[in-house]
Simulated scan of single mutants.
Amino acid sequence: MVCTARDRAGARYKLKENIEQFFTKFVEEGKATVRLKEPAVDVCLSKANASNLKSFLAAVRLAHRGTDVEALPLSVLVPAKTSEVEKPKTKMIIMSRRDYPLTKNFPYSLEHLQASYCKLARVDMRMLCLKKLRTLDLSHNHIKKLPETIGDLVSLQELNLHNNHLESFCVALCNSMLQKSLQFLDLSQNKIKALPVQFCQLQELIHLKLDDNELIRLPFKMGQLSQLRFLSAARNKLPFLPSDFRNLSLEKLDLFGNPFEQPNPLVPSIQLKIPLTLLESAARATVNYRIPYGCHLLPSHLWEDLELAKTCQCGSACLSCFIQTTVTMNLHHVAHTVVLVDNMGGTEAPIVCYFCSLTCYSQFLDRYLQSNR
């Protein structure tokens, strides 16, 4: 018996000696087809539990052969209920604690789930079983920490955590399947002071909101977010922007309300050792000549240092030996639309510059002084 939303009474098909062919190549994915002789119908099965589907097909084979199936626990052929033939639920919106489901599981077919104003102190582990979830909106709750298993939501494209109590962003999420799926991330109105270096591995991000946090710096390798088009980090505590920021290509940028420092290229921070240490020289050569490295080749502290290599104005790498200063950058160089940085109408912000040697810094200084005469 096959029941549908239009025909809940169902159509009955004879099975004994009436199966022309079984198609079971994708049975492990919950898909199969049973082709009948009379009438000439293909019964297509999908979105089934693989184990249950195998049991069903085994029973159909026995019926086709005329085997006595009375011993099998078969259901009675009665018209289906409306709930049994309605389309799988793909969207659920919960806007109060009173409506939050405590005894029932979320439908596994959900693609969009919003649970706001529910006073959630943590992410409900039942949500992490929703493998088809594309949008997860947990804004306006009391969540303090994100579980690593959010990274197992392989289809997740949008994650909204606006107005929670987050103090950090889990490094494990940066190394998870979210690298390939996450396009929208809203971490605004939390208590985050810094994002991990690994955050820039979320290279599919298009829209990133970091407003109203306590950020004292942006990720060191921000420029690696090559797909990023919309960035807002207004009302934080940023003194300057990372050097890699100049590699971004944005449509809209909002950095309003940050206490940016006044750049002074003539007063650098000098962390240069002459001559260079053997470790510094070897590390620079590894990066400059693009010699392969990784945790399988080097001790963890060495390859982690290499991941944090800074780039001099000349294009060479430097690690712990460098000269650092800040210069002014017009934000229109990285964004088509720029929200004013302050109430004075400015669109400029300080950005960090690194120099691998006194020679590079001197050449920069000459150019800077000439341009300001």
Score class of each variant (00 low, 15 high):
180 K>Y: 00
96 S>G: 08
186 D>V: 11
133 L>D: 06
312 C>T: 12
300 S>V: 15
23 F>G: 01
21 Q>S: 10
104 K>Q: 14
311 T>D: 02
347 T>G: 01
124 D>R: 01
103 T>A: 12
72 L>D: 04
137 D>Q: 12
359 T>N: 08
267 V>E: 13
326 T>W: 01
287 V>Y: 04
189 Q>A: 09
67 T>Q: 08
194 A>L: 09
341 V>N: 03
146 L>Q: 05
314 C>V: 13
286 T>K: 09
94 I>K: 05
222 M>Y: 02
217 R>F: 00
321 C>Q: 14
191 K>V: 11
154 V>S: 11
326 T>K: 11
338 V>K: 03
200 C>W: 00
72 L>M: 10
138 L>A: 11
262 Q>Y: 06
221 K>M: 12
90 T>W: 02
362 S>Y: 00
345 G>I: 13
170 C>Y: 00
186 D>G: 05
226 S>Q: 13
360 C>S: 06
137 D>S: 13
216 I>K: 06
157 Q>L: 09
57 L>K: 02
213 N>C: 11
261 E>D: 11
169 F>W: 02
278 L>Y: 05
332 H>Y: 08
361 Y>N: 04
310 K>G: 01
254 D>G: 07
206 I>E: 07
181 S>K: 06
86 E>D: 12
180 K>S: 11
212 D>H: 10
328 T>C: 14
190 N>Y: 00
31 K>E: 07
43 V>D: 00
182 L>T: 09
276 L>R: 13
166 L>G: 06
275 P>F: 04
113 L>S: 09
72 L>Q: 05
262 Q>R: 15
50 A>M: 05
190 N>V: 13
76 V>H: 03
359 T>I: 13
335 A>W: 04
351 I>N: 01
84 E>C: 06
186 D>P: 05
83 S>D: 10
30 G>F: 01
272 L>I: 15
292 P>H: 09
109 S>K: 08
61 R>G: 02
313 Q>C: 15
3 C>F: 01
109 S>G: 11
304 E>Y: 06
36 L>A: 01
147 P>G: 04
18 N>S: 06
267 V>T: 15
135 T>A: 08
161 L>E: 06
150 I>S: 01
114 Q>E: 14
268 P>D: 10
304 E>W: 07
284 R>P: 08
156 L>H: 02
315 G>Q: 09
351 I>W: 01
232 S>F: 05
138 L>T: 12
203 Q>H: 06
29 E>R: 08
143 I>R: 03
334 V>E: 03
9 A>D: 07
210 L>N: 02
349 A>W: 01
308 L>N: 09
101 P>S: 07
189 Q>R: 12
238 L>R: 04
235 R>G: 06
80 A>F: 03
346 G>K: 10
205 L>C: 05
35 R>P: 03
236 N>I: 15
33 T>M: 07
369 L>N: 09
37 K>S: 06
105 N>Q: 14
363 Q>V: 14
177 M>G: 02
153 L>N: 04
278 L>V: 15
158 E>A: 14
